[in-house]
Amino acid sequence: MSGAGGKRWLCAAVMAALALQWCAVRWDFNRYYLGVAVDAGINVILAVSLNLINGHTGQFSLGHAGFMAVGGYTAAKLTLVLGGGCPSWAQPALFLGGLLCGGMLAALVGLAVGLPTLRLRGDYLAIVTLGFGEIIRVVFQNSEFFGAATGLTGIPNWTHLGWTCGFAALTVYAILSVVDSTYGRGFPAVRDNEVAAAASGINPVRYKVSAFVVGAFFAGVAGGLYAHHKTVLNPTGFDFLKSIDIVVMVILGGMGRTAGVVAAAVLLTLLPELLRGFAEYRMILYALLIILLMLLRPQGLFNFGPSTRA
């Protein structure tokens, strides 16, 4: 991806997202399909941002749902508090502000988690991030301010296809352009050999924490989009199964392969919907299909070449 081309591509993608949204309103697209498309977009953001942590940097985070919860609750609370007296023309600005605040707060939490977990790797890091994700969920569950176990309700339904696809494009652009640079190759360098990376003047701590902060930021934004899509937030939606869902998308797409991870996120959003016809067997089939995909393409769904790019 060349530089100017990248930025132009991002603009085109955001335009296309907005045009798509306009069409959806103009011709009154099926709401169910639109809802699934928004889900897919949110999952793309989550999976691509987790891919920076788990794929490119080679850490094993199981706490992505926690970052998502921080962003979701922040954005939703901001909307609920400030949205009442907000004229309709200012709503997009408020929404955008809420999403960014949520993202930044999640990034801050990412920093807090990233720093102490630096000495850990592999399974140990996974356990710590898992525990952290659960702590966040339990904090929300017990905080009256955030609606405790009932969660937040009555969040306006502001997330539409334009927002989602726009932010998905922004996430893909941001992560790709950072990773595809000499600066960004420090991430796989730290993953491949931390000792050699340090001996080559690369600060492994900075890279690992950066991955957590950037990944958490986008997870937070995804959380805000999710909150304004579902219109209700409830702590159980951010349990560790959600984190595992995202990890599965990354593994299925191929660690460190952005294109594959995007495809896997879309596929794994559509799959349970397509399997609705099988009613109670749905989740069994879903699990079986994932096992099958893993057996057939253990290197990742879209991992064809030896390149680490894209």
Binding site: R185, A199, T308
Partner: peptide, 11 residues
């Protein structure tokens, strides 16, 4: 390094 340390997945 005594045991070569490269970034294996990089070109």
């Amino acid at each position: 390094f005594q045991n070569i340390r490269l970034f294996g997945s990089l070109s």
